[in-house]
Design a protein around this nucleic acid. Sequence first.
DNA 1: TGTACATCAGTGAACGCGCGTTCACTGATGTAC
DNA 2: TGTACATCAGTGAACGCGCGTTCACTGATGTAC
Lengths: 187, 187
Amino acid sequence: MPPSLAPKDRIKREAMRLFVAHGVDAVSMRDIAAAVGMKAPSLYAHFSSREDLIGALFHASYAEYGRQLAEAAAGPGGFRGRLEAMVRVVCALHASDELLFDFLLLTQHGFLRDVPMDQHNPVEVICRSVAAAMAAGDIPTGNPTLLAAAIIGIIVQPATFKLYGRLSQGLGEMTDEIVVLCLKLVS
Amino acid sequence: MPPSLAPKDRIKREAMRLFVAHGVDAVSMRDIAAAVGMKAPSLYAHFSSREDLIGALFHASYAEYGRQLAEAAAGPGGFRGRLEAMVRVVCALHASDELLFDFLLLTQHGFLRDVPMDQHNPVEVICRSVAAAMAAGDIPTGNPTLLAAAIIGIIVQPATFKLYGRLSQGLGEMTDEIVVLCLKLVS
DNA sequence: TGTACATCAGTGAACGCGCGTTCACTGATGTAC
DNA sequence: TGTACATCAGTGAACGCGCGTTCACTGATGTAC
C-alpha cells in the first residue's frame, strides 16, 4: 500500500483486500479503518455509509468491465473475431488487477439482483452478442442464452480456480488457451 | 412445507430457502425459527449452533454430490462416455432439488476453503478424471486443470443464469445441449 | 378408570457482544495582515 | 517575523440495535401401578 495514494483510494483498496480475504460480511468498518491506520469514524469523511463504500467498489468496477466488453463486442470482423476480442479483454482485466476481479467474483451474488440489465452490464453484453450472431446465422443455432452462459463459465470458473489456488497461472497467462476453448464452443 | 416432515428436516428446508433468498449472512436464527413456526431457542434442541446448522446443510450435500460424481467418473467406457455421465448426474441433481443446488452455488465461496480435497469433493473428482484422460491420450493435450475448470463452468454458469431468471429452463431440461457443449471442449 | 410421575419439544426473558453510526472535539496546516 | 484565525482530516466516547446463545420453566404426552 503506497502511502502516496489519496486516503479515499487507500480505503477502497484495503477494503477490497479484506473483503476478498474474509468475505464481505465478515469485515467491519473498524477492520477496514485499522487496515488503513485510522479509526472507524474517519471512514465517514470519505463514504457516507458502509453500503456506499461497497457500492462504490462494486458498481463502478462492474460497469467499467461492461464498458470495455461492449467496446470489444462492437469491434470489426465476424462474430468469432469479436468473441476472441471479448475473451482477451476479460483476461487482460484479470491480469491488470486480480484483486478487483476476485472481488467482483466473490461478491457478485450479493449484488446481481440490483444490477440493471443495461448496456454496461457485462453479462448482458455477451448475451446480446451471442444472440445476434445466432440470429444472423454466424454460428450454429441453439439456445443463445445457454451458449452465452457457457462462454462466461469458461472464463469465470478458471478465475475461481486461480483464486482458490487450483491454478497457479492467471487468466492473462492462459488467454490463448481460453480463447481456443471458447471458439470450440461456437464451432 | 409438509408439516409431516420431522422438525429437524423442516428447519433445514426453511433455512436453505431463506439462505438462498436473502444470503446466508442476512438470515438470523430468529428468522429461521419464525419460518418453521418456532422461537429461536427451539432450534438449539436440533442443532448445537448456527454454524452447525449451516455446516449440516453444506458439507453433507456437497459430499453427496461428490459421491455421485465419483460413481459416474468410475463408470465403464472411454472418457467421453464418463464425462457425459458426470454431466448428466449434475443436471439430474439440479432437476431433483434446485433449492439445494442453488444453496451450494451461492454459499460455496464461504466454505470452499474448508472443504478437504478428497474423493468426495466434486471439483476434485472432475479434475482427476480430466487429468487421467489427458495423461492416457484420450483427449488432446493441454492444461488439464484449465479444461476441468471450463467443464465445470459450462455446467455451473447456466445454473447461475437459471437462479437469476436469465434462463427459464433448469439444467434437467437442457441436459442434452450441455452434454454437447462439454463434448465440444474435449474434441 | 384414576393418579403420580417421567419425558421432552418448545418458550420467555435475559445475557454479553460487536456492529454501524453520530457528534463534539483535537490538532496540525495554511492564510491574512 | 509574529499573531489570529479558518480549515479539515482524524478521534474518543457513546448511542441503539440485532445478533447468537443460555437457562429455568411450561405444558402436552406417554407410562406405571
